[in-house]
Amino acid sequence: MKENLALAMNRFLEYLQIEKNYSSYTVEFYKKDIEHFSLFMQEQSIATFNDVKYFDARLYVSSLYERHYARTSAARKISSLRSFFKFLLREKIVDENPFILVIQPKKGVRLPSFLYEEEMEQLFSSCDDRTPLGKRNLALMELLYATGIRVSECANIQLDDVDFDLSTILVKGKGKRERYVPFGIFASQALESYINGARSLLFDRSDHRNLFVNARGGPLTARGIRHVLNEVMKKASLSGKIHPHMFRHSFATHMLNNGADMRTVQELLGHTHLSSTQVYTHVTKEHLRKTYINSHPRA
């Protein structure tokens, strides 16, 4: 039984990697969700995936709630298993998809946290650009804020990906999708200052072309970027914790607040679906409401 379950799962994971071109990170989540459901099958003495019925799927979802799984985690597991059984149905391994009618729990709307423009200025001012690491940190933050790219995308940028003539960078996003993202004069100046006056002082290896390097000259990883931002936050004396996605959230929020249309922001962020970008409208609506209350004489 275990061999048959493992074989079906491996075929599905290969399908995600080869046909769907999903990242290894995403595939790993699918694998964990299916393995979790396989343990449930063992508890219920269900021998094969074809033996799973709608009642079993409902019972599994109930067990998630009883174990106090967050709504987002439960929704992801249901979505993973629905896709998994859809694949098994296509491959004629099962006769039906027991998760097709299972209702996903509604996700609560979590508003993205962002920094106000004044807070961004405070962060930039806290960088001492007279030192090599200070120049790097300023260039890093200016680029994150100017483009809204993900921290993983930023960590993978190569020197050849930056085009100063067109003020664009080539970004390799999720699912190996590529896009060109423009950057402005502040990011351009900070990048040129870093590349010409700091990177060569930090860099001591010839086996990589990563744009951002750490204090030892190696590639600056996503974890390293997170550490850099937390240290800058402390120096800037801003309350609360900063995380890389706050630059992305701030980019999108400020763009929309200043008149950019949703489709443009979607393309710049590299979102496949507009619904991923629309979460920022909650923030911009709140901004409009506060502006109205503070500005209208009869508000």
Results as ranks from 00 to 15, higher is better:
Phe85Trp: 13
Phe85Glu: 06
Lys86Glu: 15
Lys86Tyr: 05
Leu88Asn: 07
Leu89Phe: 14
Ile93Gly: 03
Val94Ser: 12
Val94Ala: 13
Asp95Tyr: 10
Asp95Val: 14
Asp95Phe: 11
Glu96Thr: 15
Pro98Glu: 13
Pro98Gly: 07
Phe99Leu: 09
Leu101Ala: 14
Ile103Met: 15
Pro105Leu: 09
Lys106Pro: 01
Lys106Thr: 06
Lys106Asn: 10
Gly108Tyr: 03
Gly108Met: 09
Arg110Phe: 01
Leu111Phe: 02
Pro112Asn: 06
Pro112Thr: 03
Ser113Val: 13
Ser113Glu: 15
Ser113Met: 06
Ser113Cys: 03
Leu115Glu: 03
Leu115Cys: 05
Leu115Gly: 00
Tyr116Thr: 06
Glu117Ser: 12
Glu119Trp: 04
Met120Cys: 13
Gln122Val: 14
Gln122Arg: 15
Phe124Arg: 08
Ser125Leu: 14
Asp128Lys: 10
Asp128Ala: 09
Asp129Trp: 03
Asp129Lys: 09
Arg130Leu: 06
Arg130Asp: 10
Thr131Glu: 08
Pro132Phe: 04
Pro132Gly: 08
Gly134Asp: 10
Gly134Gln: 11
Lys135Leu: 12
Asn137Asp: 15
Asn137Glu: 09
Asn137Phe: 01
Ala139Ser: 12
Leu140Gly: 04
Leu140Asn: 03
Leu140Val: 08
Met141Ile: 10
Met141Ser: 04
Met141Gln: 13
Glu142Val: 08
Ala146Leu: 06
Ile149Gly: 01
Arg150Gly: 07
Val151His: 04
Ala155Leu: 08
Ala155Gln: 07
Ala155Ser: 15
Asn156Pro: 00
Gln158Thr: 01
Gln158Trp: 00
Leu159Arg: 05
Asp160Lys: 14
Asp160Thr: 08
Asp161Glu: 03
Asp161Met: 04
Phe164Cys: 09
Phe164Met: 10
Asp165Lys: 11
Asp165Val: 10
Thr168Ser: 00
Ile169Lys: 04
Val171Asp: 02
Lys174His: 05
Lys176Asp: 13
Lys176Ser: 15
Arg177Gly: 05
Glu178Trp: 02
Arg179Trp: 11
Arg179Tyr: 06
Tyr180Met: 15
Pro182Cys: 07
Pro182Ala: 07
Ile185Lys: 14
Ile185Leu: 13
Ala187Lys: 05
Ser188Asn: 10
Gln189Glu: 15
Ala190Arg: 02
Ser193Ile: 01
Tyr194Gly: 05
Ile195Asn: 05
Gly197Ile: 00
Ala198Asp: 02
Ala198Trp: 02
Ala198Val: 05
Arg199Asn: 11
Ser200Cys: 00
Leu201Met: 12
Asp204Pro: 00
Arg205Leu: 12
Arg205Met: 10
Ser206Asn: 14
Ser206Asp: 15
Ser206Trp: 00
Asp207Ser: 04
Asp207Cys: 02
His208Lys: 03
Arg209Met: 04
Asn210Cys: 11
Val213Trp: 01
Asn214Lys: 07
Asn214Gly: 04
Ala215Trp: 06
Gly217Lys: 01
Gly217Pro: 02
Gly218Gln: 09
Thr221Arg: 02
Thr221Met: 10
Arg223Cys: 01
Gly224His: 06
Ile225Met: 08
Ile225Arg: 03
His227Arg: 14
Val228Lys: 03
Val228Glu: 02
Leu229Asn: 02
Glu231Tyr: 00
Glu231Ser: 09
